[in-house]
C-alpha cells in the first residue's frame, strides 16, 4: 500500500462538471503540490481523494484497493484530511483536540491506551505545540491553531495527509513552518514514510517544497511534473493568465507573478 491513486475520475455537482478524467497519484515519501486558479477543482479533487465526494466515473485507489471498499475507520487510519479554513467549534484544550486524532485507532468501548498517549505526545512535539497543550484551541493565533490541527493529523499517523490550503492565512514565518511540518511527514512518520498532497496558491512555496506539482485548470490536469517543468511561463500564461518572472537564488528558483495578461 504505497500510493494513493485517482484513476480517470470525473465528478459533477448541480449539473456542473467539476473534474473531468483526472488522474493523479502520490507515493510514500512524496510531497505533491496541487496548484491552479480559483475554481479549477483543487478542493474537489482533495475531497474526492479523501473519500468525501463520490466520483461519477473512475476510482480512487489506496494501494490496489478502491477507497470505497475500505471500512470507514480503516480509511481514517490511512488518510488524514485537513479541510480549508478548519476551526474547531468548542474551546477544547489543545491536548484534547490532538487526542481526537486517535479516534480511528480504537473502538467505542476502548479507553485511551499507552500507545494513544505516546502518539499524542509525539504529535505535540512534532508540531511544536507542547507548550500550548492546556490552552483552549479557540484562543490560539492562526499559525498556532494550524499547528494544532496538524498535530491532530500526526496523532492519527495516517499514510497520506491531504491538506487543503493550509498556509493561506498565515504570515511568511508560519507558512515556512507548516511546509516544513508537511515535509517532515514524508520523512519521519512513526511507521515509515508518508505521502502528502497540499493545495497551494503560493507558487514559491510550491516550487521550493514540493517534489512534484499538479497544475489543474477547469477540472482537468493541465500539466504535471517537477516544479521546474510545471512552473514554466507558457503554463502560467495559459492557466493563470499572468506573465511571470523566474528568479534563481542559491541554486533554487522562485516565481513572481509579474503582470496580468490582457483578457
Amino acid at each position: 500500500m504505497s500510493a494513493l491513486t485517482a484513476r480517470e475520475i470525473s465528478l459533477s455537482a448541480d449539473e456542473r462538471l467539476l473534474l473531468e478524467h483526472v488522474s493523479f497519484h502520490v507515493a510514500c515519501g512524496e510531497l505533491v503540490g496541487l496548484i491552479g486558479p480559483n475554481g479549477a477543482g483543487k478542493s474537489t479533487l482533495m475531497r474526492a481523494l479523501a473519500g468525501l465526494a463520490p466520483c461519477q466515473a473512475g476510482a480512487v485507489l489506496c494501494g490496489d484497493r478502491p477507497l470505497s471498499e475500505l471500512a470507514p475507520a480503516q480509511r481514517a487510519r490511512l488518510l488524514g484530511y485537513l479541510p480549508q479554513g478548519a476551526i474547531p467549534h468548542w474551546p477544547l484544550p489543545v491536548e484534547a483536540v490532538v487526542e481526537l486524532g486517535r479516534l480511528p485507532h480504537r473502538r467505542w468501548w476502548q479507553a485511551t491506551t499507552a500507545a494513544d498517549r505516546l502518539a499524542v505526545e509525539r504529535a505535540l512535539g512534532m508540531a511544536d505545540v507542547h507548550h500550548l497543550r492546556g490552552r483552549p484551541v479557540t484562543q490560539l493565533s492562526g499559525g498556532e491553531r494550524l499547528r494544532v490541527l496538524l498535530a491532530r493529523l500526526f496523532a492519527t499517523d495516517p499514510l497520506f495527509i491531504l491538506a487543503d490550503e493550509p498556509v493561506a492565512a498565515l504570515d511568511p514565518y508560519h507558512q515556512l513552518q507548516i511546509m516544513e511540518l508537511l515535509r517532515a511527514h514524508t520523512r519521519e512518520r512513526q511507521a515509515g514514510r508518508g505521502g502528502v498532497v497540499v493545495v497551494l496558491h503560493d507558487l514559491n512555496l510550491a516550487a521550493r517544497f514540493c517534489d512534484r506539482l499538479v497544475l489543474l485548470a477547469n477540472g482537468r490536469v493541465a500539466v504535471t511534473g517537477a516544479p521546474r517543468e510545471v512552473l514554466q511561463p507558457q503554463w502560467l500564461r495559459a492557466v493563470y493568465g499572468v506573465e511571470p518572472r523566474l528568479l534563481e537564488s542559491d541554486g533554487e528558483f522562485a516565481v513572481v507573478p509579474w503582470r496580468r495578461l490582457p483578457d
Partner: peptide, 20 residues
Amino acid sequence: GRYLDALTLGEESARTLGFP
C-alpha cells in the same frame, strides 16, 4: 459521544476520522 467529539473539527473532518 465519540461522533460528537469528532464533530468538533467539523463535519468533513469527522467523516475522515471514520464516522459516516
